[in-house]
Each structure stands twice: as structure tokens, then as C-alpha cells.
Simulated scan of single mutants.
Amino acid sequence: MKRIEVEKRSIFIGLAGSHGYGLNRPDSDLDYRGVFIAPKEYYLGFSTVEQKENGWDTEPGIFPFLDGNKDTVIYELRKIIQLLSGANPNVLELLWLKQYPYITEVGQHLIKHRKLFLSKKVKHTYSGYAFAQIKKMESHRKWLLNPPKSKPLPSDFKIESEEPLSKEELNAFLEYLYLIIRGKIEFLEESEQLYKLLTADIDFKGVLKQYTLPDDTLETTQKFTNSRKDFIRLLQRSQSYQVALREWKAYLSWQENRNPDRAEMERKSGFDLKHGMHCIRLLRSGLEILRSEEITVDRRDAGDSEDLRAILQGQYSYEEVMKMAEDLVAEMDKVYQVSTLPHRPDVEQINQLCIELVEMQGWN
């Protein structure tokens, strides 16, 4: 959709990112996030749209504050409802921002019902996003202390006479493996919880595609898929090669694209300070939600903005940040047990809210 059409049908646009967290510097970018409701043809016809994330510097619009801003994303209502229901941290906070440069009655109605989206799922999503920051921190730290010296070769993984399986071939086989595993447990009564985990609560398919098959699973995989032993071994070695190749490309991208000032701080401290700060912010926020059933986006209001800035300035060591994270995870486990939040959001109420919002907006 064109920028002007999205802006005309927007129900709110908020100031997020570092300004939303109260952690901005004079040179910080302005990050705008919002919600729009698509017109009739996108609901009743074949057209689809999930979000608008470009065109702010090339297309005409009605909001001058968005002109030329490349850090703007406006989500279509149904897309953001899905993300909110899944307790996505980056999206949940949009309903608790302090600054909305633009908001309509429809947007206010959504924000009025924001607590519908809070559930105990926040423990898993906030800690999951925090662990993603830790993983990036660890990757960057490894590259700082022991950078890779050369591009990986198939021969490094004992792939000599044959070609390694391509990413597409690996994913096709792992998709097949996933379907076999799911089929084998689907109708076993004693495996109901495992099946639920496999198909809903964790992205098991994603795990299969991201990590190399362990040695102790190869024989079972071979039997499940009726494959040759040499093929399964090639599969495992190809996975290892593709993982190494992915890391090599990530390393080159990191070297080429990182901010010079951030790189210098990273060199001095031995880890990526921004990832460290966001890790702690996410864990603290998740803990606060479980306790208070509210989200405090602006960390000045939460009382830890200066502490988070101290992490950004390198006043905490890598070991200290990791210990903070470990303690917060342990505390979150305890609070989760006594939290009065529901385990899952009420999907029927959320569905009714979505209908109300669309009806309030209308098709014109």
C-alpha cells in the first residue's frame, strides 16, 4: 500500500526505540511504530498487507514528522493483533508508550483494552528475546577474542568426494523429518503434551533447521526416514558446514556494518554493550509485567535508566552483565509461579476487539 493510504487509515503512531525507553542520546534516531486498518478489499478480496516499512523518504504523505524517516514501521491491525496475542515484546510495548504524535478514537480504544494481551507467556517471550541478545553478545565476543581466519570449506567437515547438501536440500529433508516425527506422536494419548509443545509452544521445526543433528540422533533419523547411512552422515556434515558458512557471512557483515563508536566501545569492554543493555532491559521488563500486570516502557519511570546507561557506557564487565541476567532469570522463574496473570490471553475477547476496531474505523 502507498504511504498516504496507510497514514490515512492509521489509528495511532507512537515514538518507540531509545526515545520510548528514555535512553536516547542527542544523535539517536527517531523510531516510529504504529497501527493502521486496511481498507475493504484487503479484508474481503485477495489483496494482503501486513505492514508498511518503506517509502517514507520517497512517497508523499500527510504526517510531516515521518518525512524521510527510515526507522518507521506501521503494522496492519490483524498482523499486530497476532503479535500482541503472542506476547511479542517489541509490539506489546507500543500500547504503553508515553508519546503518540498521532492517535485516533479507534487507537485509544485499542490501548484501553491493552491488558487483554498480557499473560504468563511474557516470561517465555521476554526471556527468549533476552537470550537472543546474549547469543549476539557471545558471537561478537568470540569474534573479538578469536576472529575466524578464513571462509569455511566443505573439506573442513570431511566432505571430500561429494558436494555438500544445499540449504534448500537440507530444509526440504528436515521438513520431511519434522512431519514424520509429528505424525508418529499425534495420536498417542500419552504424548499429548509433547505434541502440543512440538506444534505450538516451541518452534521445533526452526530448531531442527538451525542446529546440527547430534550424533546420538543419527541412527533414529535414518530409520525414521528410511535413508542410507552415508546420506545421513552427509546431511549432518552439510549442516555443520552451512552453520559455519552462516557464521562466516555474519562475521563479515558485522565487520563491515558496525557503528565505529559502538565498535570502539565493544573493543574496550570485550562485548557488545548495546546487546547487554537490551538483555537486562528485557528481563527486567518481563519480571515487572509478571509482578504488576503493567508495562513500563520508559525506564526513567521504572527507575533503572541510569543503570542501563551505565551498561551502555561500559561501567559493567561482561561477567557482571551475565550474572545480572542469570539472577533475573532465576527471579522470573519464582515470580512466574505466583503471578496472577492468565497463562494465555483470551482469544475470543481479542477476536471481538479486532471486530470492534474494524467496525469503528469503517471502510471509507
Rank of each mutant, 00 (worst) to 15 (best):
P64N: 10
E41C: 07
P260V: 13
H140F: 01
G314A: 13
T340A: 15
G303M: 05
A250E: 11
A38R: 04
L97E: 12
D27S: 15
E59R: 00
F117C: 07
Q133S: 04
G183M: 11
Q239N: 08
I111S: 06
A172C: 03
L30N: 05
E192L: 08
D57H: 11
G86I: 03
L245W: 01
D327W: 00
F157S: 10
Y316K: 12
A172H: 02
I37M: 08
L197P: 04
E288F: 03
I350C: 08
K149N: 10
S28T: 10
A200P: 03
K142M: 05
E359P: 00
K323W: 12
G270S: 03
I11Y: 07
K209Q: 09
N351Y: 02
K167N: 08
L95S: 11
T72Y: 01
D27L: 12
Y336T: 10
E331Q: 14
I280M: 07
L97K: 13
R300A: 09
P148Y: 02
E320L: 05
P147R: 04
Q242L: 13
D307G: 05
A244S: 13
P147F: 03
T225P: 12
M360D: 04
D29V: 09
E93Y: 05
G17A: 09
K136I: 09
L95T: 07
I181F: 04
P148L: 02
S47A: 14
L174I: 04
I311F: 13
F157K: 07
L145D: 03
G34R: 01
R309C: 07
F131G: 07
P60Y: 05
P64T: 05
A16V: 01
E160K: 15
V335S: 06
Q193R: 15
G314W: 10
L234H: 00
I103C: 10
T225F: 10
T220P: 05
S240F: 08
K223V: 15
V35H: 03
C279L: 07
V73T: 13
Y336F: 14
Q255M: 05
A250G: 10
Q361M: 06
L92T: 14
Y126P: 01
E138P: 01
S127A: 14
Q239I: 10
I62L: 09
M332R: 00
T125N: 04
N146I: 08
T72R: 05
L245G: 02
K52P: 08
G68P: 03
N90T: 12
G303D: 12
I355Y: 06
L92N: 14
